[in-house]
């Protein structure tokens, strides 16, 4: 069953990616501005420009450029960057891994903070606590990331001076320096997901608590903590877990604002900076990479859902 599901989804995924690759390539062809002029700047002479255009292959037909790019992408050869004098891979994979660090930490925060709050709100349905959690988390998601990020910077970096407001330090220079730089951007990212997760968990808990098997368990005289751990969570968290898995892909792509606000060298910032400098290979490969991650995490979420919940089987 699951094998068939994966096979079908994989075929869809290939088609989706192919279409995205076409769109990405077409859009980058339509971008105004001349790459060679961007690279050489106002100092360029016409003969310098011509030499560079030939070297970059910009003087060939678009179709030939596309086919060569796509076949290269498939075998992992993403070509050299136009502006940074190094392979496109080196400009995308390290930022991707840094974005994953940030997204991972944010997700961890969401799980650690969001799920307990959701359970609490669900258990105390319609109480003051429930409403309070609801209002606060809803405010959190209503504030755009660039506002929340800037407020965090002003408060924690500007006023209290406890955390750095920008930059990145690799983990090789120490766990704490690395983590310090991640806390504020991760907290900002967390806000984007927290309300979602709290609500999913709350609804799940409320539903499960009303079910007959919970009533049975309570009538048996089992302690509440045991019931929650054993029965409520297992059933209530199913949708939450799959939503989280699905959001991983979305998150990596939508952290660009957080990365800009905190000067965090992730993949979103890498793609934006490549767009402004007309570094087409980086833009094309970067967008396709994000699409791939989104598709894969959606696939993973589907599979996980089918796997975890015996009631649901895709046919």
């Amino acid at each position: 069953m699951i094998a068939r599901l994966i096979a079908r989804r994989a075929i869809n995924l290939v088609i989706t990616l192919f279409l995205i690759s076409l769109i990405v390539f077409a859009v980058t062809q339509l971008l105004p501005g001349d790459v060679a002029q961007m690279i050489l700047g106002p100092y360029a002479t016409p003969d310098n420009l011509a030499v560079l255009r030939t070297r970059l292959g910009l003087d060939r037909p678009a179709m030939a450029q596309y086919l060569e790019w796509l076949s290269g992408f498939l075998v992992g050869d993403w070509g050299p960057s136009f502006t940074m004098n190094r392979p496109t891979r080196d400009l995308l994979l390290p930022p991707l891994s840094r974005s994953l660090e940030l997204a991972g930490l944010a997700l961890l925060g969401v799980v650690v903070v969001g799920i307990p709050l959701g359970i609490l709100a669900g258990l105390k349905e319609n109480s003051v606590v429930d409403h309070l959690i609801s209002v606060v988390s809803y405010s959190g998601i209503s504030v755009p990331a660039f506002v929340a990020g800037s407020l965090f910077i002003l408060l924690f970096a500007g006023l209290l001076r406890v955390l750095p407001g920008s930059g990145y330090v690799p983990i090789s220079r120490g766990l704490w320096p690395w983590l310090r730089h991640l806390i504020l951007p991760a907290a900002t990212t967390m806000l984007m997901l927290l309300d979602y997760v709290i609500r999913m968990t709350r609804v799940g808990v409320v539903e499960v608590m009303k079910s007959k098997y919970i009533r049975t368990a309570r009538l048996k005289g089992l302690p509440l903590a045991y019931i929650i751990r054993r029965h409520v969570l297992r059933n209530a968290l199913l949708p939450t877990v799959t939503v989280l898995a699905m959001n991983m892909g979305w998150l990596v792509g939508s952290m660009v604002i957080v990365e800009m606000v905190f000067a965090y060298p992730g993949i979103g910032r890498a793609i934006v900076s490549a767009i402004t400098t007309r570094d087409l290979p980086v833009v094309q490969a970067g967008v396709l990479l994000l699409a791939l991650i989104t598709c894969l995490s959606t696939l993973a979420a589907d599979v996980a859902y089918a796997f975890l919940n015996p009631k649901i089987r895709y046919t």
């Binding site: 970096a157 500007g158 407001g165 920008s166 606000v261 905190f262």
Partner: peptide, 17 residues
């Protein structure tokens, strides 16, 4: 440090970064 945003730059200066 590469800080394209002038405000971020001033804050980093203010906070001693």
């Amino acid at each position: 440090k590469f800080l394209p945003d002038a405000i971020a730059e001033i804050i980093a200066f203010e906070t001693g970064e």
